[in-house]
Amino acid sequence: MVETLLRLQYSATDTVAATTAMRAVLGAARVATRSGAVAWEQVSLVDDGVTVSSIQARGDGIRLHVPGAAELLVVLVEAGEATLITGGMRIRLGAEDLGLIPISADAELRWSAARLQLFAIPAAPLARLLGVPRSAVRLHAPRIDPCSPELAEYFRRTAQLLTSDAFGAPEVYARDLVRSATVDLLTAIIVEAFELTNRSEDASDRDGTIIRRAIAEMRAHLTEPITVPEIAEAAGVSVRGLQMAFIRQLDVAPLLHLRQLRLEAARSALVDEANVGTTIADIARRFGYANSGRFSTHYRNEYGEAPSATLHRIRGTETPASSPDDYGAAEADLVQADERFGESGTPGADRTAGAAIPIDWAASDQSPVP
């Protein structure tokens, strides 16, 4: 274990000692049972980005009370059962279930015999993710259970990666960039899984401004790569805030709206340049598709016809009966492009061993978005 990672270990047979153990990592907390006796084992790993406490405890009606949580807390039950009560909500947690205790919330976790992990996320990684100052983190938590089993499983896997690999390997933990990126990934999953937003971004009164700025940034980069975090920065919100504004007002994710804008521009280009020798491959590459077949699929899904059908309609020619879809047409266009520009389809370029392979930056998400 790396020396800079603080490791705290506690054993307790009464609630006073168990309370001391929990206060060492949570600040304010209290452990109680009906009899006052408890069998409590706790190991806490304390890092500046996250604290992970593994707790195994048995007792007659154990209650862990957290008044006004100073950090964002996630409970992962590994064995046994527990009940989480907070903010007027109550959920029962079985093995591998997750529960959330929001920042500033009063919460109580109840169980009789269970093994669980408690993840405490301070404001710093949340502020980095939300793109706000640390003092401006004001989370709204609409739920205390994950919104999907897939995200819950992703959390469990990432938590295992953090505790076993990042915290367990000195060479990995010593790399600040790797360690902080793993913590940020875990934090991002929590934000998405529990649908967290910053309160300043939760209201819809700024949606119009956010969307106008975002779409303007998208339109300025239709023919070049841009990531969702860059769009969010231009709009003056976090990635999550950008997502929520688009979903509330347009019922579509920002990345999909960007694709729609690029397809609109591609369709206009096909119509405007149909009679000047422009190929489908030319248009596809211009708007970020290295794979013309994928461009054709997205185009057909959006407009109900293949790009080749649009070209033939504008040119007044008949669409070949042998090409019901556009994959064959796309390949033919690529051949024409090769003849004009060289085998790679790029002016002056040759296809040689080791040559760079173009990337579909219009067809893929360049960043992990909630």
Rank of each mutant, 00 (worst) to 15 (best):
I55V: 15
A57H: 04
A28P: 01
E41C: 09
I144V: 15
E108Q: 14
T319K: 06
R134G: 14
H65L: 06
G80V: 00
T163H: 06
A12C: 08
L311K: 04
G236D: 09
Y303D: 01
V31H: 03
D14N: 13
R294S: 13
I62M: 12
V335I: 15
S164C: 08
A309K: 10
A120D: 07
P320R: 04
T83I: 13
S364L: 14
A321T: 14
L162V: 15
E195N: 07
L76Y: 05
G328D: 15
L185N: 10
T19M: 12
I357M: 06
V52G: 11
R286K: 14
E150N: 07
Q9T: 06
T346R: 10
S104E: 10
T279A: 07
A136N: 11
A69M: 06
S53Q: 07
T197E: 11
E96M: 03
D176W: 08
I357F: 04
L261R: 08
D97R: 06
N275L: 12
E217I: 02
L242K: 11
R240F: 00
G61W: 01
A234R: 15
V276A: 14
V50M: 12
T19R: 07
V43G: 00
Y173L: 03
L186C: 02
T20K: 05
A284G: 12
A123T: 13
H312I: 12
R179S: 01
F167I: 09
V77E: 03
L84I: 08
D47L: 07
D365E: 14
A95Q: 10
V137I: 12
A214L: 04
L161I: 09
L6A: 12
P347Y: 13
D350P: 01
R199F: 11
S204A: 14
R248K: 12
A39P: 01
T51F: 08
E78A: 09
S135E: 13
R58H: 08
L93Y: 10
Q160T: 09
V43A: 08
Q243W: 06
